[in-house]
């Protein structure tokens, strides 16, 4: 009797210790994850913050040894990203609508869903090579449009997926109620379902923007870059990621400093966008 109680106490102690160890590990791993975030951001602030002044936003990229900023690259990035989303979002939302609203018993829906995930996981550099082959070579020049298209291909699967997920969250009773009132299907979808899932769809689009605004690899062979202000998207357009890449790898200190400032800028904006999306999503729910 006494012995049995002893065994139980030691077993209990062992269980407690194992539990304690594992939970300590889980705290440590969380700290480990946060540690990298802090280190990365600290590096960016340390190298970039002192060069992030007004001229970065007002002056175009300089040649080495002269003062300048990143204004043309910032504007170019915004424009290319925006066009990429405008190309990708309508297709993405409609395709997501199809998967959620029309393809419930359709046999092609799982195929589309799978193919969409393939596109989602396709390495972005491969998408860049693809757009180079189908746009840059036939049109005969690099262009902002080619860059936008490459980014649209990255944004598309994200939007398809979030749209489908978000539309599925809309309770079926809402659709049924609208249909029962005699509204045609498209009207139910557009004015009832879309409205209900508005926040969710917008979240997907914003997430896609956050994702594509930092992409470098696909822009290397498509939008290329431009030292000056571009007059249209039909020619090579300056963009932040490629400028950061080129300046960081250059021998000149002033260029490297601009690269760090740009890196800080792009990271802050992407992080802000993500935080906005998250707060938005929470209030939307």
């Amino acid at each position: 009797m006494n012995g049995l109680r002893n065994i139980n106490v030691s077993l209990y102690r062992k269980r407690r210790i194992v539990n304690f160890l594992i939970l300590t590990c889980s705290i440590l791993t969380t700290l480990f994850g946060l540690f990298w975030l802090v280190w990365l951001l600290a590096t960016l602030f340390f190298h970039g913050f002192k060069y992030l002044d007004l001229s970065v936003f007002t002056q175009p990229t300089p040649p080495p040894g002269e003062s300048g900023g990143l204004a043309n690259a910032i504007a170019g990035s915004v424009l290319i990203t925006l066009m990429g989303v405008l190309l990708g979002a309508p297709v993405g939302v409609l395709a997501g609508t199809f998967l959620s609203e029309y393809a419930i018993r359709s046999r092609i829906a799982p195929v589309i869903r799978f193919v969409n995930d393939v596109l989602l996981s396709a390495p972005s550099i491969i998408l860049g090579v693809f757009v180079y082959e189908i746009v840059v070579v036939p049109t005969g020049h690099f262009s902002g449009w080619a860059g936008s298209l490459a980014l649209a291909l990255i944004a598309l699967p994200i939007i398809v997926r979030t749209t489908e997920d978000m539309l599925k969250l809309v309770p079926n009773t809402v659709r049924e109620a609208a249909c029962a009132l005699g509204a045609p299907r498209w009207k139910v979808t557009v004015s009832i379902v879309y409205r209900a899932a508005r926040a969710g769809i917008l979240t997907g689009v914003l997430l896609a923007i956050a994702r594509i605004s930092g992409e470098t690899a696909p822009l290397l062979f498509t939008a290329l870059n431009n030292q000056f202000w571009s007059s249209s998207l039909n020619e090579p357009v300056a963009n932040l990621p490629v400028v950061i890449f080129q300046f960081a790898m250059s021998p000149y200190e002033d260029w490297q400093n601009l690269a760090w400032a740009g890196a800080l800028l792009i990271t802050i904006s992407v992080l802000m966008l993500n935080i906005i999306v998250r707060t938005f999503l929470r209030t939307g729910k």
Partner: peptide, 17 residues
């Protein structure tokens, strides 16, 4: 560098990548 100086002089943008 040349392109930047030339642009200031002539207004022609030479974009080299």
């Amino acid at each position: 560098k040349w392109a930047s100086a030339y642009y200031k002089l002539t207004g022609i943008k030479l974009n080299y990548q």
